[in-house]
Design a protein around this nucleic acid. Structure first.
Ligand SMILES: [Zn+2]
Ligand SMILES: [Zn+2]
Ligand SMILES: [Zn+2]
Ligand SMILES: [Zn+2]
Lengths: 175, 175
DNA sequence: ATAGTTTTTGTTATAACATAACACAACGAA
DNA sequence: TTCGTTGTGTTATGTTATAACAAAAACTAT
């Protein structure tokens, strides 16, 4: 699992795409620690099943379908399948540690769960149609604008789904 | 098909939800005419199969899954199924007359194809989680904001998916 | 009209995504 | 220990979407 990119101490993501070569080992370790902590705080259990699903999503910062995940996991004797994966995904979604990308029927691990303080934090996703990576942004101005637009329409916002497909900087965005 | 709401001459939609009681007969007729015209202009054929799918979507301004549509249609002798529906939906999506709502796995007829000039026009959707209706908005400020956010991230936008779930004015948005 | 081309349709099969239901195991508190 | 809760294994099924290919219909050009 994972690619061979463990290097300097650039931040994993600054509202942008994960740097091509960041210290991914530390990146994963940090996010797993955060998950651990979050679970402990809330009296929830980060079981082996759950942990392995999260590790799988963290492996390369790319969105995976539940079936992708089920295939990649080494179930070590027990028979595992989509059911187990969906259960774990639901668990992490509720914690704000995993986000579903509707337009891909796929899931990504949250790259900055700091804001998340345990609840769903409405984020925006930049989805590269070329390399498949997804960046998680959290733009306050954009959020405000959506609020304004909804208010004008007399609409009470519950859950904004913002998924912008296009080309990431590496794949042609800079040009 | 359709509900019993044919009344005064309020606009069908002003970037908002269709008025509870608008002249729906005229509303449908107008949109079908527009589809006709658009097809003629582009040398495309609005076949009976396609027309019946569009009519089905227009019937009550609510999103329907392809399978919903396949069930509702009276196939008049010919046998019809999801395959036919998906084909028609693809046809209309390419014309900008139907939009897919990713977060619902469903489709809606475009309520203001005027802007559409035959191509995909990036719109924003307000999805009521209570009554299920969907409003199509086209907010320039919001679009600009998305452009700005993407530019800051070095990201080249191709196709923004904006689907805001919440409560429509009728279902509690005004309160 | 006729033959050739393209487009649309009918049909079957299958892929891909997601949840229901229920028995059993593991855990945590009394 | 016992009981109630939470997580897991397992099977089955529901829902959404596309592939593949033959037949029909519509256009085009002679
Ligand atoms: Zn990393
Ligand atoms: Zn890319
Ligand atoms: Zn109407
Ligand atoms: Zn409503």
């Amino acid at each position: 699992m994972g690619e061979d990119h463990d290097h300097a101490q650039e931040r994993p993501a600054a509202g942008l795409f994960p740097a091509a070569r960041h210290d991914h080992r530390a990146c994963v370790a940090g996010l797993l620690d955060h998950a651990d902590e979050l679970c402990r705080d809330q009296g929830l259990r980060l079981t082996p099943n759950r942990r392995v699903v999260l590790e799988c999503l963290l492996a390369d910062h790319k969105p995976l379908s539940a079936y992708d995940i089920a295939e990649r996991i080494d179930w070590q004797g027990r028979r595992g399948g989509p059911v187990q994966v969906y259960r774990a995904l639901r668990f992490f979604e509720d914690l704000g540690l995993v986000h579903r990308i509707e337009s891909l029927n796929a899931f990504v691990a949250c790259t900055h769960p700091v804001d998340g303080d345990g609840a769903r934090h409405g984020a925006q996703f930049l989805v590269c149609t070329d390399c498949g990576r997804v960046a998680e942004a959290s733009d306050p101005a954009l959020r405000r604008d959506i609020g304004r637009m909804a208010r004008q329409a007399g609409f009470q916002v519950q859950d904004p789904v913002i998924e912008i497909k296009g080309l990431c900087p590496d794949c042609g965005g800079r040009r």
